[in-house]
């Protein structure tokens, strides 16, 4: 009984490991040669967003804000230049696809903060109770 189980286990495992059919090969996600540069760009944008928020809540002095913003923009320009250089080197034409469409600008803008009514798109004022909703609708 034990012996049979051991045999079955051994054979099954070895068969599983060795018998790889062509259809089992994974379809790898193609990777853009620009992926790491896009990533850097995204991280700079994120830094900019953080910077703006910190400035708005009053953690930063004007002077720091302006200087850091300049730095970040300069870095951004550097990355864009690198992308162009790479494009030239690879000799390919590229298109920039915008970020995937975002969910409604922010959830807060399509849900009334007062009566919790939901709307398909962002609204300036709630259609149910009239409370301001902060959307651009």
């Amino acid at each position: 009984m034990i012996l049979a189980a051991a045999c079955v286990l051994t054979i099954a495992v070895i068969a599983f490991v060795l018998l790889v059919r062509p259809s089992d090969l994974p379809e790898a996600e193609s990777v853009s040669p620009f992926a790491h540069l896009d990533e850097r760009k995204a991280s700079i944008y994120e830094n900019l967003r953080d910077l703006q928020f910190e400035y708005r809540v009053g953690k930063l002095s004007d002077e720091d804000y302006q200087a850091t913003k300049k730095d970040l923009q300069r870095e951004l320009a550097g990355v864009l230049a690198e992308i162009d250089a790479l494009k030239e080197k690879l000799g390919v034409d590229t298109a920039t696809r915008p970020a995937p469409a975002k969910a409604p600008a922010s959830a807060a803008a399509s849900v009334c903060p007062k009566c919790r009514a939901k709307f398909a798109q962002p609204m300036k004022f709630c259609g149910e109770c009239g409370a301001p909703m902060g959307g651009q609708g």
Partner: peptide, 13 residues
């Protein structure tokens, strides 16, 4: 962090 992607024209991603 969703962002504009640089793509090689003619290749779907």
């Amino acid at each position: 962090r969703e962002y504009a992607r640089t793509e090689v024209v003619g290749v779907l991603k």
